[in-house]
Amino acid sequence: MSIIIDEKTRVVVQGITGGEGTFHTQKMQEYGTAVVAGVTPGKGGTTHLNVPVYNSVADAVKKEGANVSVIFVPAYFAADAIMEAADAGIKCVVCITEGIPTFDMIKAKFFLKEKDCYLIGPNTPGIISPGKCKIGIMPGHIHTPGTIGIISRSGTLTYEAVDQVSKLEYGQSTAVGIGGDPIVGLKFIELLKLFKEDKDTEAVILIGEIGGTAEEEAAVYIKEEFPKPVVSFIAGQTAPPGRRMGHAGAIIAGGKGTAKEKMKALEDAGVYVAKSPAEIGQKVKEALS
């Protein structure tokens, strides 16, 4: 099993004819993901990479039965694309785009409140259920099917964790990047709830970083309601306060959001916290023994 996406998922790519959209659609197709439609306003009626292109997400849902969308449109148009997909009845929107203005995201998330739709990202590598479906820009080949769920605020650091886990011959049930921005869709708790219900997920790795309070909130949930073992690493133990560390959301503001606080909260919740990023795989082994 897996969460959110599997072999039955039917994907529509918003921004399919652009450079990034084209490149990653090919990679997703090679992985075996069912890309059933693309959307580029004004290019409806054409085909691209053997996929029918529509003018709107609503058309792609109606004609091709798309149920998950992935967004590769430029930052200033991405929030609108998220709302369009949710309005068209898409069940999960994966927004890869980086650099969306915060006010645009506040509006999009408010719009989503009344819709039955998950949002993953923005500024995320995406979501993958190895062997079944890959939606996003992560390298498919480092993943192996298995029983470890991964939730992360980062891209390449997630690959690092995936790689360590794969090398110890634990595979992944589903790996999700929640995104590096201050305002994102699904966060740790919502995803932990899904992993809790997934009978094939034995343990979860939670990769956090400085900024915000999502890890502290997750710690409270884990302590009270999450029965499976959790391993965690928090990036940014050496990050100075007040500086934005690459990700828009990775900033220690007003003395809050430090790695130390987050690690303490997680440890208190019984989480196996790796102090060094090299210990993530080892901690999984420890948690499962």
Partner: peptide, 11 residues
């Protein structure tokens, strides 16, 4: 990658 860059500083 920003996350890996922070993790590299940490290690």
């Amino acid at each position: 990658g920003a996350g890996l860059a922070m993790a590299t500083m940490d290690i």
